[in-house]
Simulated assay, not measured.
Amino acid sequence: MITASPDVSGRAELAPAGALFRGLGDPTRLALVRRLARGEARVVDLCTELGLSQSTVSSHLACLRDCGLVDYRAQGRASVYHLTRPELLDLLAVAEGLLAATGNAVALCPTYASPTTSDPIAKESAR
């Protein structure tokens, strides 16, 4: 858990949180999570709805599965994906509130902000 700690040198205990945020730190993965928040979907449906290739969707879903945030069930020959942690929606709602409160200042951060052209969804859609 991320809490105020007098031991600021204990960064190792923050590694799981860092991994979680890296997993959510990609616009394509966030788009997949946002779509799956509306309900289950097959890979083919996610590809069509998000305008992404099958390989892109599959690789990002694999990352989200490795993080334990999504899972799938077999339905015939298809895999139907769903969110595994409803708390994720709460986290994203709080993040949206934080972005609104800061005026989306993080988008202007010279270290972590990325131009729209580096956005994987924008790139894939342009193809």
Rank of each mutant, 00 (worst) to 15 (best):
49 E>D: 09
24 L>R: 00
56 T>K: 11
1 M>C: 09
6 P>L: 06
64 L>R: 01
4 A>G: 08
62 A>W: 12
60 H>R: 04
72 Y>C: 01
99 L>R: 14
48 T>M: 11
32 L>F: 00
113 A>R: 10
86 P>G: 05
120 P>C: 07
118 S>G: 11
70 V>W: 01
44 V>S: 15
2 I>P: 03
98 L>H: 14
23 G>P: 02
43 V>P: 04
37 A>N: 06
106 V>A: 11
98 L>V: 14
11 R>C: 13
113 A>Y: 08
87 E>M: 08
13 E>R: 09
114 S>K: 08
108 L>F: 09
12 A>G: 04
18 G>R: 09
66 D>K: 13
49 E>K: 01
80 V>E: 03
18 G>V: 10
50 L>H: 03
59 S>V: 09
62 A>M: 12
10 G>H: 13
40 E>I: 03
12 A>Y: 04
81 Y>V: 03
93 A>R: 11
124 E>L: 12
13 E>M: 06
96 E>N: 15
23 G>H: 01
113 A>F: 08
19 A>R: 12
88 L>T: 02
31 A>I: 00
23 G>I: 00
57 V>C: 03
108 L>N: 08
74 A>P: 06
100 A>D: 10
83 L>F: 09
31 A>Q: 00
60 H>Q: 03
117 T>D: 11
35 R>Q: 00
17 A>V: 01
59 S>N: 10
24 L>D: 01
54 Q>I: 11
100 A>F: 06
20 L>V: 01
1 M>R: 13
19 A>E: 12
103 G>I: 00
21 F>R: 10
90 D>W: 12
34 R>T: 04
69 L>A: 05
56 T>G: 06
7 D>M: 07
55 S>D: 15
90 D>F: 13
107 A>H: 12
61 L>N: 00
122 A>P: 05
121 I>L: 15
87 E>R: 09
107 A>K: 10
70 V>Q: 02
8 V>F: 14
14 L>R: 02
94 V>N: 02
115 P>A: 14
23 G>C: 01
86 P>S: 05
109 C>K: 06
2 I>W: 07
60 H>E: 03
46 L>D: 02
88 L>W: 00
